[in-house]
Amino acid sequence: MAFLLLYKFKETKNYRTRFVVIMMLTTLGFIAGFVYAEKIMSYSEGMTFQDKVIYSKTTQYQRIVLTKNSRELRLFLNGNLQFSSADEYRYHEALIHPAMQGQPNAHRVLVLGGGDGLAVRELLKYPQLTSIKLVDLDPGMTNIFKKNEMLLQLNKRSLLSPRVNVINTDAYNYVRNDSGSYNVIIIDFPDPSNYSVGKLYTNAFYKEIYRLLADNGVVVVQSTSPYIGRRSFWCIDHTVASVGFHTIPYHVYVPSFGEWGYILATKNYSWKNEGQLPAGLRYINTATINDMMFFPPDMQEEETEINKLNNQVLVHYFEKDWGPYAH
């Protein structure tokens, strides 16, 4: 357009050469930026992150960055910390084992999210499970956790297990079209910081989960921090309950994140902290599970609206809860 305007108006004749040179240099700059975008981004990330960046890639869906120091490996998605190898076992043991302890006859599990395979690693400690289906949107995520030796050591090669079927697709569309029945459903999505993720926390989504869960089955939902995101946490609890589930909220302290919350949900099954846990767990036992069910006054229940597709109130709660912590 600039080239066209230069030659359309006679008044630009005396300046054409200068402007053509400027525009050509600008165009070359844009081309160079496009060609070397990944290297430029990697360089800037090396200055931004505290630790050494050992892997970075922009996929169709997100920016994946892995950093490492002498103590830990960290995963960042779009700049947000997802786990630290130093304490992720607390998060993932709390996500899986309270639900699994009362399911000795479970054989089919659906995992939504969790493309790093760390939740699946915990599930594979139960020999009675014959089918674990993992649905994660980004093949760039699941592929690196299937191939990188350092990450394979962390997830114990879980995504390569013959008992695990990895499906890369949109979870919302998947559950709407799935006709299976599952004994346990693990929902491990990122926090509801935008509408595209917020739809995965709506009553419409949980209605589909209710349909897919066996009558005596258990669902667990990653539910952000009940301390920082108090309204967000209880909104998720109320939304899950609104479709007919009986909910049991609980939380755990993860040093990298602080207090973190989960919602355990059942249909007809009466959950009790009495089942057998696998050997070798680093954090979870019967006593810690009992402690996780207690909420002090600064995390106790608050009244909220139900999160629906046509209001996405959870995203607004999340923005207000986490806004002061954005930087």
Rank of each mutant, 00 (worst) to 15 (best):
E274H: 08
K39H: 12
L159D: 06
R71V: 15
W234G: 02
Y262P: 00
Q82L: 10
Q82R: 05
M150V: 15
Y262L: 00
H246V: 14
E149R: 15
E72I: 12
Y126M: 05
N290H: 11
Y43T: 08
R121F: 12
L5M: 12
G115I: 05
T224C: 01
W260F: 03
V252Q: 00
N203P: 05
I228E: 06
D215Q: 13
D188N: 01
A119C: 06
L264M: 13
A99C: 12
K147V: 12
I54Y: 08
R121D: 09
I54P: 07
Y15H: 08
V221L: 00
N273V: 07
I289A: 04
G113C: 02
Y325F: 13
A171Y: 07
L159Y: 11
E305N: 10
Q60R: 11
V135R: 07
S161Q: 02
G29A: 07
N310Y: 09
T247L: 03
N216H: 10
K125I: 05
P226A: 03
P226N: 03
Y283K: 04
E303N: 11
N268S: 15
L95Q: 01
G113M: 00
M293D: 01
S256G: 07
A287S: 13
V175L: 00
F257G: 01
H316N: 12
S196N: 05
P296T: 07
K146Y: 05
N310H: 14
V111P: 02
L151R: 09
W271A: 01
